[in-house]
Design a protein around this nucleic acid. Structure first.
Lengths: 102, 102
DNA sequence: CGCTGGTATCAGCGAGTGGTGATGTGACAG
DNA sequence: CTGTCACATCACCACTCGCTGATACCAGCG
């Protein structure tokens, strides 16, 4: 069957700042201080976005002394990739599969 | 380099109704009337969403008499899939790539 | 033509969301 | 114990965005 993509994950990744965070975390595991430097956003703002990403199951936290490291969960991104690939494959066959005018 | 995912396309797909439309269009090419039946949304609402999808380059229109057929552009979805696959692959190596505490 | 039906556009309203400052919490240093 | 630092939470404001009704547009049909 055609597995529909999870709207929640996409919605979370739809925010430009969050997408930038995800892109940064795809390169290396970072803590909030690093993310503040890299993105230029306020700490409070970052913390809010990290909470959203955490609750969406996209990132994991790993305490390290007073610091909190964030790392991506690759399986979530891989799942997204697979679901979009399925959609794309299905869409290729749908071009000629046209429902009749009512 | 790590190609960042296009925020605009993701943002557009983040809406649940639009995602449902895309899922439906991945199965067959439909016109607005069909989409109204399938989603239960008002015609005006659908038309607004279709405009957003069109401007994001996700769907193409194909007039057919008085009807307007919409079909997906598979390459956009395939591109998304590839970009997420890259992110996932990069994220897998980023787990041990931890920046030092400041 | 004028009428009808399919579609697009416009203006307005209400809810949800992001940004921010103040504040709370918990861990380490001295 | 006390101060400091990293981080999280809360409350609030402003703004955006989606939904809707009214309306305009356009293609076919009689």
């Amino acid at each position: 069957m055609l597995t529909s993509v999870d709207p929640d994950v996409i919605r979370v990744l739809g925010d430009p700042l969050r997408l930038k965070i995800v892109t940064l975390l795809a390169r290396e595991t970072l803590c909030t201080t690093h993310l503040v430097e890299e993105t230029g956003a306020k700490q409070t703002n970052l913390s809010n976005h990290m909470k959203v990403l955490r609750e969406a199951g996209i990132v994991e936290t790993e305490p390290c002394g007073r610091f909190t490291y964030y790392k991506l969960k690759p399986e979530v991104l891989a799942g997204l990739s697979e679901q979009f690939a399925e959609l794309a494959a299905s869409a290729r066959t749908a071009t000629e599969n046209k429902r009749a005018c009512p």
